[in-house]
């Protein structure tokens, strides 16, 4: 693509160069720190309940454990969410839906998987109808337990926040 701009001539893909320049700017120290700090405290998990760990996930958002103090607010629409929590076993039928929901979420997006089933099958390891979330989604944090206690969910949120702060989890599919 060639552009003429009052005397100067720019050669190349302007759109791609602009995107690269923006990325270069955002990845510099001051902007990047502010961006990561902002992402850290606005982890909104999409309300996508895959199995029974949802009961403990709900308890984590309820008054006694109150995950909202970490900026963790379960929300309905995937278009407004940046975190996906696989709550327990992922069956084949649900895995299809999980990928759809994940693809609808805007970047940067993170995936946490909750419960022994979401790590490697757990008690259902020999079931004919389950999928390991790590095979289909880029999982960042695994929360062990069957079901994990709400404290474990809170701790995993803090872990993800620290990873974001240190730049280990960028949540981008480059």
């Amino acid at each position: 693509m060639v552009c003429g701009l009052s005397g100067t001539v720019l050669v190349g893909n302007l759109e791609r160069s602009a995107r690269r320049a923006a990325r270069w700017l955002v990845e510099r120290t001051p902007v990047r720190g502010i961006r990561d700090w902002g992402i850290k405290f606005s982890l909104w998990p999409v309300h996508f309940t895959t199995a029974c760990c949802g009961a403990e996930f709900a308890a984590a958002s309820a008054p006694r454990f109150d995950a909202e103090r970490f900026g963790f607010l379960p929300f309905v629409g995937p278009r407004q969410c940046n975190l996906m929590l696989i709550e327990g076993t992922l069956t084949r039928k649900m895995a299809e839906a999980a990928v759809w929901v994940y693809e609808q979420m805007p970047e940067p997006k993170f995936v946490m998987s909750m419960g022994a089933c979401a790590i490697d099958g757990g008690i259902f390891w020999n079931s004919y109808n389950i999928v390991r979330p790590k095979d289909i989604l880029p999982v960042e944090v695994f929360v062990p337990g069957c079901p994990p206690r709400p404290e474990a969910v809170a701790r995993s949120i803090i872990m993800l926040q620290k990873r974001i702060e240190r730049g280990e989890s960028v949540g981008l599919r480059v």
Binding site: T89, T91, K93, I123, F124, S127, N129, I130, C146
Partner: peptide, 23 residues
């Protein structure tokens, strides 16, 4: 329905009577 069909009844056949309790 069937989004959470985890085949509990079939898995029970591979576990002992005590292991089936958590299942």
């Amino acid at each position: 329905i069937g989004y959470v069909h985890r085949t509990v009844e079939k898995i029970a056949e591979t576990k002992t009577y005590l292991q089936t309790i958590p299942l």
